[in-house]
């Protein structure tokens, strides 16, 4: 099964899978997040039409307390 890295965790998925579907699977739908794929920012408007590919490196971030 193809694998992607989500925040450093290897995650298996079945193709085709869009970013939107991945967020639902991770129970992150509706949360305010930002996503980088392979070093590039993915705008929110692109989640529906962005299919994931094996080996993708995803960073999904939020704001946390900090100085």
């Amino acid at each position: 099964m193809p694998t992607i890295l989500v925040n450093g965790n290897p995650t298996e998925f079945t193709t085709p899978l869009t970013l939107r579907q991945l967020l639902e699977r991770l129970e992150l739908q509706g949360r305010r997040v930002a996503i980088e794929r392979n070093g590039e920012i993915l705008p929110r408007s692109r989640y529906d039409d962005t299919p994931l590919a094996a080996g993708d490196l995803l960073e999904i971030i939020i704001a946390v307390g900090g100085g």
Binding site: N9, L26, R31, I60, I61, I62, A63, V64, G65, G66
Partner: peptide, 18 residues
């Protein structure tokens, strides 16, 4: 605020800083 990876698969629905 700081920018960090979100926890995957933990506490869905939990309150966030924002």
């Amino acid at each position: 605020v700081a920018i960090r990876r979100t926890n995957i698969g933990q506490h869905p629905g939990e309150q966030s800083l924002l």
